[in-house]
Structure formats: structure tokens, C-alpha cells
């Protein structure tokens, strides 16, 4: 019995690890590419070990452009991302509460509008949006990159709505009897129980915003204000040369913050699962 158990466990871990390696291989290839020279990358060898590992991609890449180093670009990315993520969590949870917990007439309309905002490709919305911000005199500032995130993001509003569906209505009723208003129910009952949903929102929104380069491209002008995602794209110029080594090196560094955020918040998703008795 015990041996059978150990065997099953080993097979499980073996499977998860081998499959995990296959999954992560392309990422490892990119990381190893950051230590290869351009010619070796372009030859497309599949080996993960560089012929002559070198760090120069990191120094060339970090040097950035015309005296602006990647320290500036990463700094810009970091604060935009943190503020936008914060905005998403706050606003989306408020809106989700309204759309999932409160019964009122217009709610279906707003829900439909919310889905509709996701159904038109960015390419056709981009220019009209730009013209609005231009009219407001807010281009070349960070406002267009941040403010919309304080107005709720459809993807996360709907996600939180679904999680709220899982919170029993009896809790609201009990709270109402205890004298809670609809406002305090949100702060005292819903928010604390929404933790896993909020954590997923933070993890996902963080890396989406971190990777987003279209917004920074449209709204930022001065190279000093570029984000890392936009700066990394500067290495790939279709019309002249592409410095893949430097691009891979900076992409690798760019992975670190997102990964750290993931590791930090992931604990809140795993914690407690062990007690759910799912031992197979």
C-alpha cells in the first residue's frame, strides 16, 4: 500500500516536472539566447547552452538609447503598472459588486456595455480614443495610461462577479439583520471573501499592464518617459537591424518583476488548499 502510494506520487511528480520542462522550454531558450551572440540566435540552434556564454548583451541592452538606460524605463513601467493595478482592483470590485449583488433595472444594460467594450478590436478604437485624450490636452502625460484603469476593467469586473456568485446570499441577509447597509456589506462581507479573486486580478493585471506597449507608444513622446515594454521593442527594427541578444537580455530582466509578483501573491492561492481534502 505504502509502496504503491510512493510510486504514484513519484509518477505524479515526474509527469509534472517533465511536462513543466516542455512548457517552459521556449522561455529557457529566450533566457539562454540572452547569453548568445546575434549570429548564434539567428542560426536558430535549439540548444539551451550558449557556445560561448557572454554577458555583453546585458551591458549593451542596459545602456539603452542615447544615454537613457533601462533603469529609467523599468522605473517608468513599475510605477505605471503599480498604480494601474491598484486602480483596477479598487474600481473593478466596486463595479462587480453593483452588477452581481444589487438588483436594479439598468444593470443588464451596463453589463452588456461592459462586454461590448471588449468586442471591438483595438485597431479601430485607437485613433478616436487618442483624439479624445488629445482634446483633453492629456497626451504626452501618464494620465491616459492610468485613469481608464480606475474606471474598472471588463475582464476583471466579470471575473469578480463570478466569484461573488459563489458567496452565499445568506451572509448578506444575516448582515442586513445585524444592521449592515449595502455599503458596509461590501466592505465587511464581500471584500474579505473576495481575496482569491483579488489576488488573481493583481497577478494578471500586473503583467498585462507591464507588457502593454501600445498605450505607451501612443501617449508618450519623450524617450525619458518610455516604458520598458516600449523600449524593448526598440531593439527590433524591421527596416534595419535587430539586436536579438540585447532584446532577449532586457526581456529576461523584464520577467523578474512579474515573476516576483506572481510568487508573492501565489501563496494566497495555495494556502488552505491542503485542507480541502483533495488527496485523490
Amino acid at each position: 500500500m505504502n509502496m504503491k502510494h510512493t510510486l504514484r506520487k513519484t509518477i505524479y511528480h515526474l509527469f509534472v516536472v517533465i511536462f513543466g520542462f516542455v512548457m517552459i522550454y521556449p522561455v529557457l531558450w529566450m533566457i539562454s539566447g540572452s547569453f548568445k551572440d546575434n549570429a548564434e540566435i539567428l542560426r536558430g540552434t535549439l540548444s539551451l547552452i550558449p557556445q560561448e556564454p557572454k554577458m555583453s548583451n546585458y551591458s549593451t541592452g542596459w545602456r539603452g538609447f542615447s544615454g537613457i538606460t533601462f533603469a529609467t524605463f523599468f522605473g517608468n513601467s513599475l510605477w505605471i503598472t503599480v498604480v494601474a493595478t491598484l486602480g483596477t482592483v479598487i474600481s473593478s470590485s466596486l463595479v462587480a459588486y453593483s452588477l452581481s449583488r444589487i438588483r436594479y433595472k439598468a444593470k443588464k444594460l451596463w453589463f452588456t456595455c461592459m462586454l461590448a467594450t471588449m468586442m471591438l478590436p483595438g485597431q479601430v478604437i485607437m485613433i478616436p480614443s487618442f483624439l479624445i485624450w488629445h482634446g483633453l490636452g492629456l497626451t504626452n502625460t501618464y494620465v491616459p495610461l492610468i485613469l481608464p484603469y480606475f474606471c474598472g476593467q471588463a475582464f476583471f469586473i466579470y471575473q469578480m462577479m463570478q466569484f461573488m456568485q459563489g458567496i452565499p446570499r445568506e451572509l448578506d441577509e444575516a448582515a442586513t439583520i445585524d444592521g449592515c447597509s449595502k455599503y458596509t456589506i461590501y466592505t465587511h462581507i464581500i471584500l474579505p471573501l473576495l481575496k482569491p479573486s483579488i489576488v488573481t486580478t493583481i497577478i494578471i493585471q500586473f503583467y498585462w499592464k507591464w507588457d502593454d506597449y501600445m498605450g505607451p507608444l501612443l501617449y508618450l513622446n519623450r524617450p525619458q518617459s518610455y516604458t520598458a515594454s516600449l523600449a524593448i521593442k526598440l531593439f527590433a527594427d524591421a527596416a534595419s537591424t535587430t539586436d536579438y541578444g540585447a532584446m532577449f537580455a532586457m526581456s529576461t530582466i523584464s520577467l523578474i518583476p512579474v515573476f516576483l509578483i506572481f510568487l508573492f501573491f501565489n501563496r494566497y492561492l495555495v494556502q488552505g488548499i491542503g485542507t480541502s481534502g483533495l488527496k485523490g
Binding site: F65, I127, T139, M214, L217, L218, P223, K233
Partner: peptide, 19 residues
């Protein structure tokens, strides 16, 4: 000054033409 990669340059230029 501003600088971009080729594709991005023209995306940006189109928004500036529009405005």
C-alpha cells in the same frame, strides 16, 4: 526628439496625422 522601431513609428505617425 522621439525614436521608435519601424512599425511603431508609423502607428504613432498615424495618430499624429489624425490630430
Amino acid at each position: 526628439y522621439e525614436f521608435y522601431s519601424f512599425d511603431d513609428y508609423f502607428t504613432k505617425l498615424k495618430t499624429l496625422v489624425a490630430s
